[in-house]
């Protein structure tokens, strides 16, 4: 199997930011050009890797099976949809009894609802059961990657940050940093910061 284009890296992003990534784009006119979601912290994501708790599964298909799963991280919920073209992921959602820790590799997808708002979901390439250690590692790793993006946001050469400033409310940037703290503090044994005394 030829793999001429380089494989797209699986970006790490918390659910809260992922669900805000409503703008998608392509970078070339070629027919098979990859589709990217624009992350509000100023990066593009063709693929993501998420780890969280599968809390609910439901077959919402009419004629054929179409499974929806909710995967929760410390900041929000990823919506996973798997149908006949993702048979392994669909089978996993059918056979797995929530709650369970799962890892999902998948592609961001957006769809417009009847009221005009845009929902972001995840089309899985794979879902597997993992343990708590893997989930904790993902939280710390995703925190680091998110901070990397927030830090690089003001670089003049950061074209995706420029794009994000154009498409999203840049005042939300700090909220993603806050989410990082929330996520880290949610881990067992991590103490919350003492509230700072106001001078």
């Amino acid at each position: 199997m030829s793999q001429a284009p380089t494989r797209e890296v699986a970006k790490r992003v918390f659910a809260r930011e992922f669900n805000d990534a409503t703008y998608t784009f392509k970078e070339s006119d070629e027919e098979r050009a990859p589709n990217f979601a624009l992350l509000p912290t100023g990066d593009r994501a063709n693929r993501v890797f998420v780890v969280g708790t599968l809390t609910e599964t439901e077959d919402i298909g009419d004629d054929s099976e179409y499974w929806r799963g909710r995967v929760v991280d410390p900041t929000g919920t990823f919506f996973i949809y798997a149908g006949q073209y993702q048979p392994e992921a669909a089978a996993f959602l059918r056979d797995t009894e929530p709650p369970a820790y799962v890892s999902v590799v998948g592609k961001p997808r957006t769809f417009e609802t009847d009221d005009g708002s845009v929902n972001v979901s995840l089309r899985p390439e794979s879902i597997t059961a993992v343990d708590e250690a893997t989930r904790d590692r993902w939280v710390v790793e995703t925190a680091e990657r998110t901070l990397d993006r927030v830090e690089a946001y003001d670089d003049e050469t950061n074209e995706y940050a420029a794009m994000a400033t154009e498409r999203y409310d840049a005042s939300l940037l700090d909220s993603y940093r806050e989410e990082v703290l929330t996520a880290l503090e949610s881990l067992d044994g991590v103490a919350e910061d003492e509230p700072e005394a106001t001078a």
């Binding site: 343990d131 250690a133 893997t134 904790d136 590692r137 710390v140 790793e141 925190a143 680091e144 901070l147 927030v150 830090e151 940093r177 990082v180 703290l181 880290l184 503090e185 881990l187 991590v190 910061d193």
Partner: peptide, 18 residues
């Protein structure tokens, strides 16, 4: 296989100081 949780302290400090 990486099963140990990575250090959270440095990440926390980083997030708080930004």
């Amino acid at each position: 296989e990486l099963t140990e949780r990575p250090d959270t302290e440095s990440t926390l400090i980083r997030a708080r100081s930004m």
